[in-house]
């Protein structure tokens, strides 16, 4: 598997690719990549808005710990990520 169409060179080498489990689905990630970046590149349509740790829309539950900012937290091998139901309606 390649780095995927949304990922841009340079930076990622194939040997370092690992997997995180997002809502039960395996999603590839690379060292240094934020959880939000892995979800976005993995076509998971994550909540991602301000991208600088301020709006907290991207918060997820990581390995059972709540309130983790997906845009500021690097993915790690074997990490279990649970996204939250969106409170905002799609008005």
């Amino acid at each position: 598997m390649t780095a995927g169409t949304r990922r841009l060179p340079p930076g990622r080498v194939e040997e370092e690719r690992f997997t995180i489990l997002a809502d039960g689905v395996p999603v590839p990630a690379w060292p240094g990549e934020s959880i939000a970046a892995a979800l976005l590149a993995g076509a998971r349509s994550p909540a991602y808005f301000c991208g600088m740790g301020v709006c907290r829309e991207c918060v997820v539950v990581v390995n059972g710990q709540a309130g983790v900012r997906a845009c500021m937290t690097p993915a790690a091998p074997g990490m279990t990520v649970d996204t939250l139901p969106r409170r905002g309606s799609q008005a």
Binding site: T5, R6, R7, L8, P9, P10, G11, R12, E33, S34, A36, A37, L40, A41, S45, P46, A47, Y48, F49, C50, G51, M52, C71, R86, G88, S89, Q90, A91
Partner: peptide
């Protein structure tokens, strides 16, 4: 519709590209 996934701030778009090397959309 501003709460739909895929709607991101200018800073969020910049950071996804400059800070993560990921294109926020096609």
């Amino acid at each position: 519709g501003w709460t739909l996934p895929g709607v991101v701030t200018a800073g969020g778009s910049q950071n996804m590209i400059k800070g993560q090397g990921v294109r926020p959309g096609e």
